[in-house]
């Protein structure tokens, strides 16, 4: 952004302030002014959005999402290359031990606050994209810890997955029902307690009994869950955190038969 003309930089700063103050008229006005300068407002907006989400600046991320809508930016592009990109960037930092959980959480709120504004536009254009891959996600029965689970959901959503969130303290049968109902591609289970780890093999056993184990990929995670444990209980994988869960699933869906083949 530093190489932009001074006038443009000034307007961007003013827009940041207007967004922080949630002054909608001023945002609209400044967006017009920016357009008139002839700069590449699309590139600036996407860059701004990813940076603001990464920094967890909720109001500003919302303000710049308004800019994106006003200038008619493709809502999917706004989501994927702007908002979600910021979530991925902070996720990577966390993975490398350079960021803490609170930073992930405020980034997540910033991303969702922008997504809420985009929602009506995303729906309108839904026809033109392929159906997103569905993941059923929850914390197992007996365990109420759900901050980590929600972060996994955020990162999956940021990577274009459709998440069906069952919440926490979820009975095994609920996972099965939801997987069938939504023709899911994957199930993601979390637990933070050693006493509730045994719920994971229970869910997997039920999937087998229902004859649908091969229709879904199973990811398990949470502080006490190790890779060895995952393979021991018959899960497909246990990526070590929320960011790598998204990376793993993204690459694995390519080698997995598509939904219509599996569920018919």
């Amino acid at each position: 952004m530093e190489d932009l003309p001074e006038e443009v930089q000034g307007l961007i700063e003013e827009l940041d302030e207007a967004a922080e103050d949630e002054d909608l008229d001023k945002i609209e006005d400044l967006t017009q002014k920016l357009l008139k300068t002839g700069v590449d407002l699309e590139a600036i907006t996407l860059k701004k959005l990813s940076f603001l989400v990464m920094e967890g600046e909720e109001e500003m991320a919302q303000g710049w999402t308004r800019v994106a809508i006003q200038v008619g930016l493709d809502p999917f592009k706004t989501l994927i290359e702007g908002l979600a990109e910021g979530m991925n960037l902070i996720g990577k930092k966390y993975e490398q031990g350079e960021a803490f959980v609170p930073q992930l959480l405020i980034a997540s709120s910033a991303m969702y606050s922008g997504m809420d504004l985009l929602e009506p536009y995303l729906k309108r254009e839904k026809g033109h994209t392929s159906k997103p891959v569905t993941v059923v996600i929850g914390t197992v029965e007996g365990d109420v810890h759900d901050i980590g689970k929600s972060l996994v959901k955020t990162l999956l959503s940021a990577n274009g997955f459709n998440c069906v969130d069952l919440g926490n303290d979820v009975p095994a049968s609920k996972f099965i029902e939801a997987a069938k109902e939504n023709r899911a591609t994957a199930i993601s289970m979390s637990t933070l307690m050693t006493t509730t780890m045994a719920e994971m093999p229970r869910v997997i056993k039920m999937l087998k009994e229902e004859g649908i184990r091969d229709k879904v990929m199973v990811m398990v995670g949470g502080a006490p869950v190790t890779t060895e444990y995952a393979s021991q209980v018959g899960a497909d994988v246990s990526p070590h955190d929320a960011a790598s869960a998204a990376t793993w699933l993204k690459s694995s869906v390519n080698d997995f038969p598509p939904e219509c083949e599996r569920w018919n």
Partner: peptide, 11 residues
């Protein structure tokens, strides 16, 4: 709420 504590700890 623990999640609010976490977020407020940075804000």
């Amino acid at each position: 709420g623990a999640e609010n504590l976490s977020m407020l700890s940075i804000k």
